[in-house]
Each structure stands twice: as C-alpha cells, then as structure tokens.
Design a binder for these strands. Structure first.
Lengths: 238, 238
DNA sequence: GTCTATATAACGATAGAC
DNA sequence: GTCTATCGTTATATAGAC
C-alpha cells in the first residue's frame, strides 16, 4: 500500500494538541472572567474542569450535567467552581470558542503541498490525526453545538462548514489543474467530511475492531480517490 | 444518469412511515402504561407529545427539556401528561423502542432483489427515503441514544450496527458471487453508513443547497460503486 | 483560594377538585 | 380526562467564614 503524505508520529511531534495547551490558551483568553490569580493553578484546575465537562456531557449531555456533578468529578466545591466561570452557560462558551479557534488554526497549518493530490491527502490526515489526539472534544462539539446561544449558533455552521469548504477548495484546485475529474465537488467534499467525522463519532467501533488512525486514513484516501480520476484519463496515479 | 432501483414515490406509496402510525403502534404496545381509555384520543395526544419531545430535544437535548416545557408545547397540563407515561425516562424509552422496531422492520422489508448490485441500491434508497420521510426522529435517536438506561445501552449498539451489518452482508454476497471486489468490506459498510447518516444529521445543509433525496441517493450509489469493481474485471456495469 | 451554608428558582411527580 | 395546587427534591448561584 502507498505511503501516507503525513504520518501520525510526524503530526504529533509538530503539534502540541493536548487538552492542557487548550486550557492554557483558554485561561489566557479569559483572564477577566477567571478570578484565580496564579496562572499555573488556574490552568491546572481548568484542565480538571474541562475534562470533567467533556466526560459528563458524553454521559448525559451538557444540560443534563449539574454543577454538583461537576463539583464531585473535579473535587472542587461549588463555591470554588464559580471562581473559574460566572455561569454554566459561560463555561460552555469558553470551552467551545477555545476549541474552535484551535481546530481551525491547526487545519490551516497543514496541507501545504502545491500538488492538489498530495494536499488532499495531507488535509485528510491532519483532520483525522487531530480528532484522534483529542478524541472526546470533537464529539463534544458535534453533540453539544445546540447548546450555544442563538448569537453563536451561526458560528457553529461556519465552523462545521469551514473545514468542508477547505476540502472543497482543494478539489476545485485539482479540477482547475485537470488532476481531478469530479461531477459534483460540493457533494464530494460533504461526503469526505462525513467519513472524517465518522472517525470520532464512532470511536468505540473502530477501537473495538482495532483499526488504527493511519489504516483509516489510507482507507478514506483510497475511497475518495476512486472517485477523482476518470477512467479515460491518463492522470490516474499508478 | 442511471435510473434508481427504488424511487421515493414508490417507497412512500408502499410504506406508511408517518409519525402518526408510529404513535398508533406505540399506544397499542404500551396499553398498560397509558391510562387513557379512548384509543383515538390517546393516539392523537401521544402524537402531540412525541412531536414536542423531538422538537424540544433538538433545541436543548432530552435531559435539558423540562416537563413544563413539554406541558406548554403540547397544551396539556402537567397532570394530564402523566396519564400518558409514568416518568420522563419511561417516555423516552417508549419512543425509542417504538422507533427502533419500525426502522428495522422497514429496512428488512426492502432490498429484496437477488442480484447484490441491485439489492445494494435498494437498501441505500430505502435507508435514505426512510430518514427523509421521518426527518427528525432519526437524528433524535442518534443524538439522544446516550440517555438510555445501561440495560438498554446494549440495544443501541445493536441498532446502530444492525443496519451496518445488513449492508456488510450485501457486500459479502456480492464478493461471493464475484460481482464485487473489495479490500475491506467492514470498513466499506461503515463508510456507507456514514454517508447515509449524513443525510439526516446535516439536513439543513442539503435543503439549503436544494439537493433532493433522489439526487443524493444517486450520488451515494455512484460514490460507493466506484469502489466495488476492480478495473481489470469485466463485471463493471456499463 | 477554597470551603460550608444557604437563598431562590425550577425540577419531576402527585393528590384531589371538577 | 384534565385541571390546579402543591409536595419534596434538586438546580444554579451567592455570601461569608477560614
């Protein structure tokens, strides 16, 4: 089988995609809302809070999670919790906005090859590896997006669609360069997005079948590429 | 473009997949739990309840929906509601189990052709058309499956995977008959399921782009079939 | 900076009038 | 069969001790 345009090892060594780095950025960006002065303490406790929110939300949904649940899971009292946010809703938006920023940044940082065939492979790998290294935060975003205030609801669609548009743009470049032959590039980009989302929405399935993220990356690339090259054309890679 | 193995019109005329028919079955199956004697009244009010549950759950999740919300949305008082179920949890399980039964029944009733190539197309169409005719109940099941009691959690996986296994079986039949040439039929069935789920999970996207369910069915069939036939083989349909 | 204790509102669920 | 009124519980959020 062909080599991947980007390996998981390479991706991880280049990106510090830990939840801790997200929480560090979260604390920095919300200094006005967080009443804890010592930065290290704020980051460490925020990490416990975010971990607990994601875990509890997976079980009963963000709305179903009470702050008593959160207090118990983090070993922080109710009073202590309110030094890290002013309301349950604010906590959600802090996490959501920080994750959104991080995801879009990293997706844009990869997929830099000039050849659209390679760039498509890089983008597929980057998306899969990112969701692999932050397994639960991706499905948290997908499942809980409905909890956003109406003002922020528009941003969800933007976030959902922005990565899809990114893939669409690569496909368009490939068509322009006559590397790809695609009937409907919009439907194609949507289908690709659906395959990438499946990786984090059905995590239990893949892990129980012992499918690695690189195996799945190869599968998705092959599955999509079978639709990119006309059989009459000579640009199908050998 | 090729004709579809099953049109939406044919599917609709053969199946009474309305929410009302689900509620009728729901009332019949839960006669012991529902204290309303007149069947017609029970069905009509249960329909209002189920509609409201799906709608409110979409906005704030089932756990986030209060029975006061439900009371307001249905124009039934709190006391009246409790004549249709004994607890919020029981209400959820009644809806979930009834929907599950109906979905599996209909999926099994279609896709009857002996040629696996045709049967695959029929199954894809049936799944898409069913989720098209009951748009919100499918995403309700997907998003709220986590609310099931641990005892019923196992059934979710069964339901999720049973349709996937159904597609996998069709692929296996095709391989056995040397109609299909597939490297990993399990991954392939999972990918197909992901494409079908996208139809009801991203409904707003398709409707704003004015993509019809038959257009999408053709796209999915083409997308998958590009991966089923080896280019060396002579069994690729003309 | 974290705790306990508590205010206030909303929750699921029930009883009894009509 | 549906209503109003209300139960006991739990929710979010806050105040003040340490």
């Amino acid at each position: 089988m062909n080599e991947l345009a980007l390996t998981y090892r390479d991706f991880i060594s280049r990106e510090a995609t830990s939840l801790e780095s997200i929480c560090r950025a979260l604390v920095m960006h919300n200094r006005d809302k967080i009443q804890i002065k010592k930065e290290d303490r704020a980051i460490q406790n925020m990490l416990r809070i975010v971990r607990a929110v994601i875990s509890l939300s997976q079980k009963k949904g963000f709305q179903g999670m009470s702050l008593r649940d959160l207090s118990q899971e983090t070993d922080l009292s109710m009073g202590a919790l309110y030094n890290y946010f002013n309301s349950k809703e604010e906590l959600f938006e802090m996490i959501y906005n920080e994750g959104k920023t991080m995801i879009l940044q990293i997706l844009e940082a990869h997929a830099t090859a000039s050849d659209p065939r390679i760039r498509l492979q890089q983008a597929i790998c980057a998306h899969l590896y990112l969701s692999e290294s932050l397994p639960r935060i991706f499905s948290f975003f997908f499942m809980e997006a409905k909890n956003l205030s109406p003002k922020n609801q528009k941003n969800v669609i933007t976030m959902e669609q922005s990565s899809e548009r990114y893939f669409e743009q690569i496909l368009l470049d490939g068509i322009k360069q006559q590397s790809f032959y695609i009937e409907d590039h919009t439907l194609m980009a949507g289908a690709l997005k659906a395959l990438l989302q499946d990786w984090y929405l059905k995590r239990y399935k893949f892990s129980s079948r012992k499918v690695s993220v690189e195996q799945y990356a190869k599968f998705v690339i092959g599955f999509v590429e079978a639709n990119l090259y006309s059989s009459q054309s000579d640009s199908q890679p050998g």
